[in-house]
Design a binder for these strands. Structure first.
Lengths: 248, 248
DNA sequence: CGAGGGTTTGAAGTGCATCAAATAGTGTGG
DNA sequence: CCACACTATTTGATGCACTTCAAACCCTCG
């Protein structure tokens, strides 16, 4: 898109994104500058595959602006969505451990701007700066809890409840009486993210509407009675409502 | 069980378990001794709950001998099994991050011996010894990949395939032509671990037998043609066969 | 032997997937 | 600005996988 931006603007982008990223919290300015030397900006057009599962890893990424899908796919073309990430999120970094290959594939959901850094510089900075190791541990444990929740939802919640739960996480941690929100990406992708087929998603959303009184207008969803939705969705969940993190 | 063992034996147990644990690899003898001072042995009888989801955490554990179930349960009594751990595995340690509470409940599947350590000493040793932070990162990334695989299996494999895949992981990384193995814990628990009901497990195992020619005698399973089982189970999976880690 | 848990089997129901087709929405070139 | 092409979404009809409820069976252990 703006690949003709002047150098100064690019640098601003990198610094802004890096300081926006929890992983590098606590670094000194000089350490950040060092990182910037190694970083490059990548523009990934919608549908662009950044890497595939089990490919040998050389880089990891930070989303500057856009959406990235992490997924795994079988030989016969089925795919399981692991996560969908946006601004400030990091991915591909776990390839630093284990056998050094990516544990899933990554693809741009829409035109996306990313920062690419070599795995080797992550290794260096972790060894040089213990804070970064702690930041990384923190982000990994957060992700881990998210995955545990996901696994629970897949086994205990039905399709309408999973959608309801997703909507509630979009609301954030405060619990207003009513709220209007927009689905962050298209319904087909959201269906995959929630482990169901598009047709099932459509029907499940309709059922959620009739059961909880939400109203739907394309990607815009109005929840007139949040408490009602909480009762409907969270009854089959081990967590009490404001389920913190909203990593869509 | 052997709660009347003499002190020297207990110390031997602790040192053996600690050095068996990947998390503490690379520590000096004196650092290990320090840890031992803080450690205590816990005997958990079958069914004993060590902690529950969202409880404030003060300790984490290492399995010395036995089996531990990590799970989450809803108000209406449904539960989702997150993981089942045995000797050398660590759990509860992620409570060090986030809001300091456990992200799932833990229960002894059978009489189990554990080592308990305070979260605070984990924090100390991580800050004092960067190696431990790296070890922990390594173990968390391993777990993360395991969870990603799990999520994939739940969405792409059917019940018989999930069982077959589990059996193959029990075989380890070498791929013999044929093998006899024993289920590590009872079928009801295994069913939960694989995200299905006991009845479904029973029927799915029978189907796996008729489709792949394995033979079943209680908990003993003989696989006469491993390649056949691989074809049957792994066709719906993104990973090529020897799927490494066998964290049951 | 008898009690109790684990496991299997049967019959019926439910939820989601699949296949097929209609409809709505979006961007394109004329 | 409209018609077309293409994609996203919805709707309908049907099938299959897993669950549920119920009962039998099996096995171990006191």
């Amino acid at each position: 898109m703006q690949s003709s931006a002047p150098v100064s603007v690019i640098h601003t982008d990198i610094t802004a994104t890096l300081s926006n990223c929890a992983l590098f919290r606590g670094l000194s300015d000089s350490q950040r500058t060092d990182l910037m030397q190694q970083a490059s900006i990548v523009h990934a057009a919608k549908g662009k595959t950044l890497y595939v599962h089990q490919e040998e890893a050389s880089s990891f990424y930070i989303v500057s602006q856009g959406w990235i899908k992490l997924f795994r796919e079988t030989l016969d073309g089925n795919e399981a969505v692991i996560d969908i990430l946006n601004d400030g999120h990091i991915f591909g970094e776990t390839s630093m451990f284990g056998n050094g290959s990516y544990s899933s594939s990554a693809q741009a959901v829409e035109d996306t701007t990313l920062i690419r850094l070599p795995i080797s510089s992550l290794r260096q900075i972790i060894e040089a700066e213990p804070k970064v190791a702690l930041n990384l541990l923190d982000s990994m444990s957060r992700f881990r809890q998210q995955q545990e929740r996901e696994l629970e939802h897949r086994s205990l919640q039905n399709a309408p409840q999973r959608i309801g739960c997703f909507l509630l996480r979009l609301c954030g941690t405060e619990m207003p009486d009513e709220v209007t929100l927009h689905l962050p990406y298209d319904k087909t992708l959201l269906a995959a993210r929630l482990g169901m087929k598009p047709e099932t998603f459509s029907r499940a959303l309709a059922k959620l509407r009739s059961e909880t009184g939400i109203s739907i207008n394309g990607a815009a969803i109005h929840i007139s009675n949040v408490r009602h939705l909480v009762e409907y969705s969270c009854s089959a969940c081990s967590q009490s409502f404001p389920c913190e993190d909203a990593g869509c």
